[in-house]
Nucleic acid binder design. Structure first.
Lengths: 141, 141
DNA sequence: TGTTACATTAGATATATTCCAAATAGTTCA
DNA sequence: TGAACTATTTGGAATATATCTAATGTAACA
């Protein structure tokens, strides 16, 4: 995990590198799951309590706005976050709500006529179904 | 708006056709926006108050489970719903959170190796950026 | 016609997130 | 350096969204 790289990415976005903000980013970067804000809050404070709930949310908002972190909304559950490292798509489990990465591949864009005057920032592909764990559990009933 | 068609689709899913459930479905079907649960609750009760908040949520859940209605989660805002009529993709505005339909086109599925043992139910393509209204507003500053 | 499963209700409760106003820390530059 | 400015953090209150509960009502059908 590259301390300097995180600092640089913060500076590039006009964000100060505070201990709290750094902790959120560092946790997201070496976390291969897709934690909720509550997970992140807990993880950051596990070693030495030093970030409030509001700050965790503030920093997540800042990082999402800066384009360093992605937020994934899940129906009826808390939002999930991940550091935007390698590009990837998402798989969301119908049953347990877990979010998993799916290998990236290019998605054809819509015809420009279909978008009209809208300004397109990004395309996101979401797969839905049962994750490996839940699929196994369903079969065994 | 076809009363019999709605009744049939309910029966096909083992759902009773109650006045409250029917009202939710009918509203969604002739509504070209993507209302929130609160919008739906209000609309159903506008003429003659006759559905509680809990019932509205219950019915939305049932209809989503039956595959008749789609739920779209939006970051930091209430979920949106739409009747599954013609297939379409979704455009979500970064600024105002509105959800709009985008003309359907086929999306290539991931390689089966990338999915492993997961069971794929559907692929969903989400576009993000600024809607026509918000794009205009941004330029005029 | 009585039993059972399905639905509805109002209000309480749970969960997730944002707001607020005061305190703190970092930056700038005279 | 240090005054002035700006960004950040903080705990707790407030809000928004969604679900649960327990009582009651309604339809289906054996």
């Amino acid at each position: 995990m590259d301390v300097a790289a995180i600092k640089r990415s913060f500076e590039g976005s006009g964000l100060r590198c505070t201990p709290q903000r750094y902790a959120v980013m560092a946790f997201l970067m070496d976390c291969n799951r897709h934690p909720t804000a509550a997970d992140i809050f807990e993880a950051v404070n596990r070693v030495d309590p030093r970030s409030s709930r509001a700050t965790t949310y503030n920093n997540l908002r800042d990082l999402v706005e800066a384009g360093l972190v992605r937020e994934v909304a899940v129906e009826g559950r808390a939002a999930r976050f991940d550091a935007k490292g390698m590009r990837h798509h998402h798989f969301i489990c119908d049953r347990c709500g877990n979010v998993e990465d799916v290998e990236w591949y290019d998605v054809p864009r819509p015809r420009s006529r279909a978008l009209g005057k809208r300004v397109l920032r990004e395309c996101e592909l979401i797969f839905r179904g049962l994750c490996t764990k839940c699929a196994g559990r369903t079969l065994s009933r």
